[in-house]
């Protein structure tokens, strides 16, 4: 079997298979159900929701 056929097979079979598997994994582990929780993942104790960060420009005399 030549290398091109191998690549085409890989593209047509393996890539969609990985996609389907990850969809299945995501639904099995609740990635599509616990959306509220997922939306909060960038935040943590140190940089919690409701608090802006990186406010360093144009602060007048405020800047230390």
């Amino acid at each position: 079997m030549n290398v091109i056929a191998l690549i085409l097979l890989g593209s047509v079979v393996v890539v969609p298979a990985v996609a389907l598997w990850s969809l299945h994994w995501a639904s099995r582990t609740g990635e599509f159900r616990l959306l509220n929780r997922a939306a909060l993942l960038p935040f943590d104790d140190e940089e919690p929701v409701g608090q802006a960060t990186d406010q360093i420009l144009n602060r007048g005399g405020d800047r230390r």
Binding site: L35, N36, A39, P42, F43, V49, G50, A52
Partner: peptide
């Protein structure tokens, strides 16, 4: 998707849409 929520301190508008 990480930095807009992080900087303004507010979760993304709709997580459904991001999926």
């Amino acid at each position: 998707y990480y930095f807009i929520p992080k900087v303004v301190g507010r979760p993304i508008h709709s997580y459904y849409l991001s999926v």
